[in-house]
Design a binder for these strands. Sequence first.
DNA 1: CGGTCCCTTGATATTCATCAATATCAGTGG
DNA 2: CCACTGATATTGATGAATATCAAGGGACCG
Lengths: 256, 256
Amino acid sequence: MLPMPERLTCGGCALHPLCLPSGLDQVALEQLDSIITRPPPTPRGKHLFRAGDPFRALLAIHTGSVKTGVLSGEGDESVTGFYLPGDLVGLDAIHAGRHASHALALESTSTCEIPFGHLEDLIATTPTLGRRLMRIMSHSMGAEAELLTQLARNTAEQRLAAFLCSLALRLRERGLPDREFVLTLSRHDIGSYLGLALETVSRLFSRFQQQGLIALRGKLVAIKQLDTLQERAGLSRASGWITGADQSPRAARIRS
Amino acid sequence: MLPMPERLTCGGCALHPLCLPSGLDQVALEQLDSIITRPPPTPRGKHLFRAGDPFRALLAIHTGSVKTGVLSGEGDESVTGFYLPGDLVGLDAIHAGRHASHALALESTSTCEIPFGHLEDLIATTPTLGRRLMRIMSHSMGAEAELLTQLARNTAEQRLAAFLCSLALRLRERGLPDREFVLTLSRHDIGSYLGLALETVSRLFSRFQQQGLIALRGKLVAIKQLDTLQERAGLSRASGWITGADQSPRAARIRS
DNA sequence: CGGTCCCTTGATATTCATCAATATCAGTGG
DNA sequence: CCACTGATATTGATGAATATCAAGGGACCG
């Protein structure tokens, strides 16, 4: 069985099960293929779109990674999202028909462009597709809410540990190496995403390394003890485990 | 012109322009009416649904207010959402078919129940309705992202000021009194929502009152100087205004 | 009344942002 | 190949914002 040469169809894409086409039948897949285009890859540091740009298409990450963010009055960037292959970028712009945030390639990134007008037409005749998109949006809302409680309630250590755990999980879902990978986000970006100063991120990385939870070489990270990292993230407590001594510096950050 | 007696139809509802039916034609409206039910009001302190419940229907708040939240392992509640009339609750449960959070009535609350299975059927034949729902979800995602950057980057004062401003705005959109209203969320809930201790919320309320920005009598709040409150929220800086001296205690909470 | 819940205010402790100095690395051009 | 340069990362010292601890005051309710 020789592998077929890769074709630019959703059906043949390895990310199929995670991305928009998941669960669609053959007919719907072909319709989707007919409206999707694959622009040339965006090089590292270039914008996919900017705040204020009219919203024309959803972007599915094919390879690479992307951050989204907004600029404050002084020009500081707040990182609001971090996207991996199979993720859909731009969903929050549907409402206003205009992007409220910018998106920037963290490495050379290839995307599938899904013109939204065409997608809406397709949805009108293919309800399955609409259901799929709604589910993705619902999922995305849940993930955002989870991040929100992370930021609101947890210590810096818990946030960073949770970030690493969730990243490892997402990489595994995509069939990518999940115990050793390159952090395409800088320390600064991670801090901005998690609401921490870049120095705090750096210090925590160092601490985790000293404690043998991870190994670091520049932007390359190796997860050594995912279980301990999960405990540090406070996830064990959320599920009601009894893990002996409470590891967290405070019993609870927000008193009840 | 005597007012018609209120009928249980979306077309006759004052919240029409904000809620799901916005922009629908007469036919679609009647279809929507045919699947929506209005259960008896939920009294203050009672649950609309709990975490783990199967997802059956979206709830549109008709009158009253609702908070959503999750429970940590120790039973502490994290408030994740705050809903007013015209808002749709439960969108994040579509994906999993199960509620990840609970919803609790903050006062006697009347809701419109929209069975999701029926709604999906309706959407299959009425694309306008699907578009409307997607826009609502997109809008909701944007709002969540905004809250997220608020929590990640701003001081306690900025968060609380922003909370009050956005609440006033939402009340105005709904045609409700927006300069004087009852806070149905407790100090504890507000703190949990904004990632602050209840004492900090209380202190900030006192400070705002001393400075004449608001007037407080228990849960009753009167907004005295919305413009100053907006400055405190850091919104003026985001839009690039030049307001003279920088009011914030630190130039920027996260260094660039 | 007595109890409970919610709020307010004060004193103290702690996390983490900020300031600052140095180290590392990638790219560029001599 | 090496100096130069700018971006990025690490590490230490300090201070500020805010959580925590503590005590008391109202309001509501049985």
